[in-house]
Design a protein around this nucleic acid. Sequence first.
DNA 1: AATACTGTAACATTTAAGATTACATTTAGT
DNA 2: ACTAAATGTAATCTTAAATGTTACAGTATT
Lengths: 136, 136
Amino acid sequence: MNSNFTLAVHSLTLLSLMPDRMSSSDAIAESACVHPVRIRKVLSLLRKNGIITSKEGTGGGFIFAIDPGEVNLWEIYKITAEGSLQPKCPDVNEQCLVGANMKNVLLSIFSDAETHLGEFLSKYSIEDVVANVKQT
Amino acid sequence: MNSNFTLAVHSLTLLSLMPDRMSSSDAIAESACVHPVRIRKVLSLLRKNGIITSKEGTGGGFIFAIDPGEVNLWEIYKITAEGSLQPKCPDVNEQCLVGANMKNVLLSIFSDAETHLGEFLSKYSIEDVVANVKQT
DNA sequence: AATACTGTAACATTTAAGATTACATTTAGT
DNA sequence: ACTAAATGTAATCTTAAATGTTACAGTATT
């Protein structure tokens, strides 16, 4: 899985610790040690999905649009990393019985597996993550 | 996930269709459309884990060491792709409460998730995959 | 001895991820 | 109205990971 998921969770965790003011991509980027543009890209996805809002201009930034307890890790996974459980199936020799069908068989199995993963990740909200981070 | 898992399953499926003679890396590579050296590398892992045996020299190649009904997808996943569910956690600013603990929190959650994935993938043997491939 | 394989290391190439630059746009403050 | 501080996004560059290729030593079969 690429790091967009981690970046999204990291950013949301920071935002939930700053519930009453906007955080800039620069500030978030500094905590996550990545380029601010990447933060803006990832948070742009979250914004389009209604999880956060953003404001341009002086004093602008990002802030939660809903209760952090209402957002779970599965939603974030779907937005930032869907399909990354799926194994890569390179092109194969279609002449061959195995080649011709392997992709479909694995796709079907891992599609089910991702559904299970979803049930598991749905149990963790951003609030839970915040609690865990604080507790350590 | 990289394609080693898919290549391993592909190869084992071919081998289970050829239970009474050895298959060469060249033959498998042709079906999977990859370089024979890659097949040898992946199958080398399976050999070290006792799933197949190999023989060098004329007439050599690869063959199942055990019953294809005894090998499940989780074992193959562990050998070829373990940890690939884990989201990437780039280095972070340790000065920051969130940065310092995010990695551990996510690691713990996804470690559990991988256990669940294991239970799911354990239900599918290579024999099941072969049956599915044939059926299509 | 010749041929056909595996095993593995070294190197080259390609692809994907991520960083950086650039700039248009928006907003707030003076 | 002007300036400064922010997002939005496209384009490009760089780096890292995946994959392909070559090379060759070792082994078994004929």
